[in-house]
Design a protein around this nucleic acid. Structure first.
Lengths: 193, 193
DNA sequence: ACGTGTTGACTGACTAGTCAATCAACGCAT
DNA sequence: ATGCGTTGATTGACTAGTCAGTCAACACGT
């Protein structure tokens, strides 16, 4: 008989432990043993649930992506008009759980493994496509033919501020970064009109 | 009798092998043995010259940074006027040897290790400060008080397009990316005036 | 003979993944 | 309710392999 409550709670604990471990020890030094220890179980159990180290890390990234998506939908709720929706899309990347130190470290690790791991690359594509299409659909009514280029620019700004945050020390100001992108977008949109 | 010619040629070969190895195998799977094999020497020799794996990788990054700086100075030569200099600064990041696949992979690895390795972090800071000050000094005469924010935005765009390139497949268009940033900067500068 | 350059062989540490064996919960027949 | 069998959860011990770094010895020009 499967005990789904235990299964999901263990999986969840291991995934969160994996993210924390990436944040603390750095991608290169993450071990299955370390993740399992942090989750309070044996390394054998981690293998029992996930099969391999890669699967754990992929699951961690999937979890982060789900959180980002949830944050996006939450901020979109009740918002009307393309400009407001764009604001929400940008803000989603810098709010909630998405901009914590360890999550940013996981993103970096994600980009690294996407260079050689198929599943990681697939996941990354999903995120990029989702962001791009969200930006595009709201940029088109505002900027017409310039929408694709603007979408690329905004996406690059988001990723750029993300990666720069990874090398910072001290406290971040996520809301400020979102506001900066927003102001830049304002200027670029005015120039289009 | 020391033979500095051999020393430097070995060091150079090992550093280039390290960059190639990062590009091919991905950061996580880079080994001293692999680097040494690619350079045509034994792993013991790599340790003889660099002392440790970290030192090899740091040296590789220092080499990339030097190349970027050289490219920057080259493009600055004979250029006058802040706007032209800004164009050169941006273009330097997307031209020459700086935008090859393996170099971008090395940048990613660099950002990763900067999170926990002091020397890597120090090097990254040097690059960031250098870029920021180059941008600032040319932006100030064009945009006055908005210069700091514009500098951050341009820097984020550069890093953003870099990291997005890392997850791409197929051929890149570095000149196109530089032109895109340049056009964006044009718009932002007009709005300042 | 001397010293620099170079290596193969070795080690100690560590890791992912496996496996047989225990443990704990639940269904079910009585 | 009680005992039993089944099944999932969990682990410690183990395997097999890898890697960074060391060291004593060799090559060879001077």
């Amino acid at each position: 008989m499967p005990r789904p409550d235990i299964q999901t709670s263990r999986r969840r604990a291991l995934v969160q432990a994996a993210i924390a471990e990436i944040g603390k020890r750095g991608t290169l030094d993450v071990t299955v043993g370390g993740i399992a220890r942090r989750a309070g179980v044996s390394s054998a159990l981690a293998h029992h649930y996930f099969g391999s180290k890669d699967h754990i890390l992929t699951a961690a990234m999937r979890h982060i992506l789900q959180g980002l998506r949830a944050e996006h939908l939450r901020r979109l709720r009740g918002v009307t008009g393309p400009r407001e929706r764009l604001r929400a899309t940008i803000a989603a990347n810098f709010g909630g759980q998405s901009f914590r130190r360890e999550v940013i470290a996981a993103w970096l690790a994600f980009y690294v493994s996407a260079q050689h791991d198929r599943e990681a690359r697939r996941l990354l594509r999903v995120y990029q496509r989702r962001l791009r299409s969200a930006l595009l659909s709201d940029l088109r009514p505002l900027s017409g033919d310039d929408a694709p280029q603007l979408a690329d620019t905004v996406a690059a700004l988001i990723d750029g501020f993300y990666i720069r945050e990874a090398s910072r020390t001290g406290a971040a100001d996520p809301a400020g970064l979102a506001a900066r992108i927003d102001a830049t977008l304002d200027t670029l949109l005015e120039a289009c009109a």
